[in-house]
């Protein structure tokens, strides 16, 4: 049995299924419910169709909408604020 594919979210390994978006995997992992020390959500998600920009993350150094970005194994994904 092979290990499930994972990407790195702020230092935490997040498993995902092939073909899933970053957003789907992050929501399953409850990333939108985890509050950061400043009270902001580490991940927020709203429209799901790449329009509202709420789910913007930095994936391998690039700012992308998590809801239209396929998850890839080993990707380094960070919250983006500011």
């Amino acid at each position: 049995m092979s290990a499930p594919a994972e990407f790195d979210w702020n230092g935490v390994a997040i498993p995902f299924r092939p073909g899933e978006t970053l957003a789907a995997a992050l929501l399953r992992a409850g990333a939108d419910r985890a509050l950061r020390p400043d009270g902001e959500a580490a991940f927020s998600y709203f429209c799901g169709i790449g329009m509202c920009q709420s789910c913007l993350v930095v994936c391998d150094g690039r700012a992308v909408e998590a809801c239209v970005t396929p998850a890839t194994a080993g990707a380094v994904v960070r919250s983006r604020h500011g």
């Binding site: 299924r17 899933e20 978006t21 957003a23 789907a24 929501l27 399953r28 409850g30 939108d32 419910r33 509050l35 902001e40 959500a41 927020s44 998600y45 709203f46 429209c47 799901g48 169709i49 509202c52 809801c67």
Partner: peptide
């Protein structure tokens, strides 16, 4: 607030993953 999303946004994840949000 975090935890609030559009119905369509919830629906596309449901379609994509086959799972409803937990809670």
């Amino acid at each position: 607030l975090p935890g609030v999303r559009t119905a369509g946004g919830m629906q596309v994840t449901l379609k994509e993953t086959g799972e409803a949000p937990q809670g």
